[in-house]
Every structure is written in structure tokens, then in C-alpha cells.
Computed example of a mutant assay.
Amino acid sequence: MGNSDEIAKICSVEMFEEISCEKRKILTNTWLPGDYSRKLKVDWEKVKKSKISFTLKPPIVKKLPCDFEFDANGVRKAVRYLDITFMGDNHVLETEAKVFVFGNKFAAVMKHEG
């Protein structure tokens, strides 16, 4: 999607026969729309069961462009931004988030406003 310096890069494509929409508190290594930095807790049970030591990292929140306009020369400019939170693998949401489930993978439900 877009140029090499833009938001997304498709690395592989898979087909799924069944797709469902569910609410989940445990999401690993995925992006969620919104700022969840104060809506997470550490999954201490998972941390205790780990056989290796590691550093717990806070969630990453980025303000990413979600709407663009083009000038007369066709140059694209971001006009609206959305907070996006990256969930690592040791956090649990305090409230459930809606996700699409594809086999054992999932993706956050994103909606366009405007």
C-alpha cells in the first residue's frame, strides 16, 4: 500500500475459509485504534511462566495519518491523524476490543470516520 516509506507493507497473503468477529482482552503483537497506554495491565502469569528473562516494554502509541488531501500537483498531505497502540505480547486489555479472527490470527476492527 503506497510507497516504500509509507504506513503498511504486505509481506504475505493467506486465504481463510472462515472469518469471525470477536471481543478479546488478550491481543499479542498487533495494532489497536486509539490510545490504550493507560488501559492495559501486565500479564504477570505469562511473565512468571517464561523460561527466559526479558525486559517488559510499555505499549507504543503513535499518531498515524488516516486521511489525506492532494494538492494541484498531486502531492499528498495528511489532514487527519489517529492514535494507534501497538500491543506487545505481555499486556492484557482492561476492556475487550473487537477483532476479526482468521484461524489463529486476528486484526483489530478499524472504522473510517468522516
Rank of each mutant, 00 (worst) to 15 (best):
M1V: 13
G2H: 07
G2D: 07
N3S: 14
S4Q: 07
I7E: 10
I7Y: 08
I7M: 13
A8G: 11
A8S: 12
A8N: 11
I10H: 08
E14Y: 11
M15F: 15
F16W: 07
E17I: 06
E17D: 14
S20E: 08
C21S: 08
R24K: 10
K25V: 01
K25P: 02
I26V: 13
T28D: 11
N29P: 05
T30C: 12
L32E: 01
P33I: 03
G34Q: 02
Y36I: 01
Y36R: 01
S37C: 01
R38E: 15
K41Y: 10
K41H: 13
K41M: 12
E45A: 13
E45G: 10
E45D: 14
E45F: 07
E45L: 09
E45T: 12
V47Y: 04
K49G: 00
K49D: 03
S50W: 08
K51D: 13
K51N: 14
K57P: 06
P59R: 00
I60M: 11
V61F: 00
K63D: 12
L64I: 06
L64S: 00
F68R: 05
F68E: 02
E69S: 11
D71Y: 02
D71I: 05
D71T: 05
A72P: 11
N73S: 13
G74N: 00
V75M: 11
V75F: 09
R76T: 10
R76P: 05
A78T: 04
V79E: 02
Y81C: 02
D83Y: 04
D83T: 05
T85N: 02
F86S: 03
M87R: 04
M87N: 07
M87S: 03
G88N: 07
N90G: 07
E94L: 13
T95K: 10
E96P: 07
F100R: 08
V101D: 02
F102A: 10
N104P: 12
N104D: 15
K105D: 14
F106D: 13
A107Y: 10
A108F: 05
V109F: 14
V109Q: 15
V109L: 14
M110T: 15
G114V: 07
